[in-house]
Every structure is written in structure tokens, then in C-alpha cells.
């Protein structure tokens, strides 16, 4: 990843989004993808979608999705949001510093707790031939468990459930009856929250899907997210 972005505005024409096929994604990867899509949409940027099974391995850090703006590329929601903020196309650039700090706190809350807790090994590695489709998911599972353990986060789903509920409660409180997290403007946090909430809402597992039912205002937020109808 190079640091210097191209100076002209031509880059906005050639944004490519690389992501996994939707049936091979983990829950949090799907959340990140939807968050990036939402963020690009509220930043009013055009992009083309490229679906690749090996997106995870194309990314140097293993973080998906990838945004490519030749010759640069950025992996994961944070890097992408930073880049777009750098280009002053960010939706949140008009917020005052106190609000920005609040927003970042919520973003890190979602990413640190909700993101690993969302893990399922559902369908991961389906594109690979046997016997790799047994080995690679197992390796992935081990690496995620290791990273959860290092960060002293719950590994067992029932433990994770209470963590998710804490985060959802915090988000629900912040949102209140509004349709935006900060005033009436759409920000990075809206995109990120939408991505992850939507992925929970659309999850195949009933148990995870039911998590949201206790927070009707979050469901309303998801269903009424303005720019997402075309995604």
C-alpha cells in the first residue's frame, strides 16, 4: 500500500471493489462489505464490484473487502474510510471534533467486540477442492480463536452473545428514535453500523437473527437506511 493518493479527480471514476462471493463470506466480512458499500454510497462515489473467491489472500493483511484505485489499494473499512477522508470526500468531514471522537469510539466498539463475536465458520472455504475445504477452514478457525484469545474476547458463542447485546444496547441508546446516529447527517458510523446490523439481520442462523428483535429502533434504522436501496 502506497501512501500518496493520486492528485486529480480521475480516481473517482475507477474505483473497484473486490469482495468474496456472498455465499462464502463470514458474517463479519459481510458486515464490512455492506459497511464499505454504504460508505461509498453516502460519499456519492461510483464503483464497480469484482467478486473473487481469493479476495482474502489478495489482501496483504487478510482483511476484506479491498478497494482498488489504480495503482493504490486499501483493505478493510478503516483504511478505506481514511483514504476517502484524505480525499476530502468524507461524509463526516463537517463534524466537530467532539462528535468525531464519539463516533470513533462507537466504531471501535463495534469492531472490537461485535466483529469477532459475529464469527461463524459457515460455508467458509466452499470454493476450494477437497481436502483443502476441510483444512483451510480449520486453519482459519484456529487463527481467529487465537486472535480472540489474544484480545481476551469470548470464544464461546453463549459468552459472545452477551457482548453483542451490550454493543447493540449502546447503539440503540445512542440512536434513540432518530434515523441517524449524529444529527441528521450520515457518517462513517452510520455506514459501519448499518453494514454489521444488516448482516446480522440477514443472517441464515435464526439465533443470531433474533438478537436484533429486542431493539426495534435498530431494525427501523436498517430498513430505512436511505441510500441502500440499490445495494
Amino acid at each position: 500500500m502506497a501512501t500518496a493518493p493520486p492528485s486529480d479527480e480521475a480516481w473517482t471514476k475507477s474505483i473497484e471493489l473486490y469482495c468474496k462471493p456472498s455465499d462464502e463470506e463470514l458474517l463479519y466480512e459481510k458486515g464490512e462489505k455492506l459497511a464499505v458499500k454504504a460508505y461509498l454510497a453516502i460519499s456519492r462515489l461510483e464503483y464497480s464490484v469484482h467478486v473473487r473467491s481469493n479476495t482474502e489472500f489478495m489482501s496483504p493483511s487478510g482483511v476484506v473487502p479491498i478497494i482498488r484505485v489504480p495503482p493504490l489499494f486499501f483493505c478493510g473499512f478503516n483504511a478505506i474510510a481514511n483514504f476517502i477522508e484524505l480525499k476530502e470526500r468524507s461524509a463526516s468531514s463537517l463534524l466537530d471534533s467532539q462528535t468525531t471522537a464519539d463516533m470513533k469510539a462507537y466504531i471501535s466498539l463495534i469492531q472490537d467486540k461485535l466483529l469477532p463475536a459475529e464469527l461463524t465458520k459457515h460455508k467458509y472455504g466452499d470454493n476450494l477442492p477437497s481436502p483443502l475445504n476441510q483444512i483451510i477452514p480449520w486453519l482459519k478457525r484456529q487463527s481467529i480463536i487465537r486472535s480472540l484469545r489474544n484480545r481476551e474476547l469470548p470464544i464461546v458463542y453463549s459468552d459472545a452473545k452477551s457482548t453483542i447485546k451490550q454493543v447493540l444496547q449502546a447503539l440503540s441508546n445512542r440512536l434513540g428514535t432518530s434515523l441517524r446516529f449524529f444529527d441528521d447527517r450520515l457518517t462513517e458510523l452510520d455506514a459501519l453500523a448499518y453494514g454489521h446490523l444488516k448482516s446480522i439481520q440477514d443472517c441464515d442462523l435464526l439465533e443470531i437473527r433474533n438478537l436484533l428483535t429486542d431493539y426495534p429502533n435498530l431494525v427501523v434504522f436498517c430498513n430505512n437506511f436511505p441510500v441502500m436501496n440499490n445495494l
Binding site: S53, R68, L132, I136
Partner: peptide, 12 residues
């Protein structure tokens, strides 16, 4: 390069 990057991943 991106061309190499697109090839990355596991294969059998």
C-alpha cells in the same frame, strides 16, 4: 503487482 495479487490464495 495487482496481476500477481489476483493469483494469490490456495490451490490444489
Amino acid at each position: 503487482s495487482w496481476a500477481v495479487r489476483e493469483e494469490s490464495g490456495h490451490s490444489l
